[in-house]
Design a protein around this nucleic acid. Sequence first.
DNA 1: CCGGACGCCTGTCGGC
DNA 2: TGCCGACAGGCGTCCG
Length: 275
Amino acid sequence: MPELPEVETVCRGLSPRLLGRTIVEIRVRRGDLRHEVDGQGLNQGCGQRIASVGRRGKYVLLSLTGGGVVIHLGMSGVLRWLPDCPPPGLHDHVDMVLDDAACLRFHDPRRFGAVLWWPGDPVQHPVLAGLGPEPLSPSCTADYFLERAAGRRLALRLFLMDGRVVAGIGNIYAAEICFVAGLHPGQPVRRLALADWQRVVAALRQVLTTAIRQGGTTLKDYRDSDGRPGYFQQQLQVYGRTDAPCPRCAAPIQRLKQGGRSAFFCPGCQVPLPE
DNA sequence: CCGGACGCCTGTCGGC
DNA sequence: TGCCGACAGGCGTCCG
């Protein structure tokens, strides 16, 4: 569910609440997530202070004085800060209780998420190895994409969703980025020229920074760390808008199946490039 | 190496 | 009303 803008929003909300707090107890009610929760490891975090709250792609990183926690929200995960740690409800799998009686609660109905312990700096966790650059960092350039796309027939949308190419872009934002760049989502990436990649880079910066400013996209259950929804769904131009008029040319938005998932595009504004 | 299909899990929605 | 299939924001593995 949550892509980079949602995870960034969660991190910004958590940071002032968690910084400097000490973890006093970890409660794992259900550990069979995507990766089995290592309760033994996480318990080593008890008594440690939270030194920073960070993000890498769609992962939340809690850096402790002697270790770290890496959290992924999967499709349905919600990370909430709760001032008095109320009794847990259905799918509230993990609580990290803090020294001010608040808690950080991981809720995840589909259990595609993960809560991982790491004995050192969490950015060193193996799940983060091989992730591509942050899309909003200076290293994410048109030249970089051109090089990574060389010789590949993979569709543009799937290329942008591949975390090894660029971190943090999922189905919603890949669709919006292709639209803003004026490129067909099924476009084989080897056909894009440098000027096309420049449009992709400009589009992804614009889409992601706007989405962060709006607090992310709430289609259904996404909430930030205080339980508030995002507002970027009001600005989606193609995602989920099958048959609705394109905001630029009024042609009906089309949907197609790509990599087992839905892709949305405007047949008027996103025409395949000539070979 | 590359790309496509599938599975993991629960919940919701639309059609019959 | 109830049942059943399709689908949902991600990602790892397997196979051709």
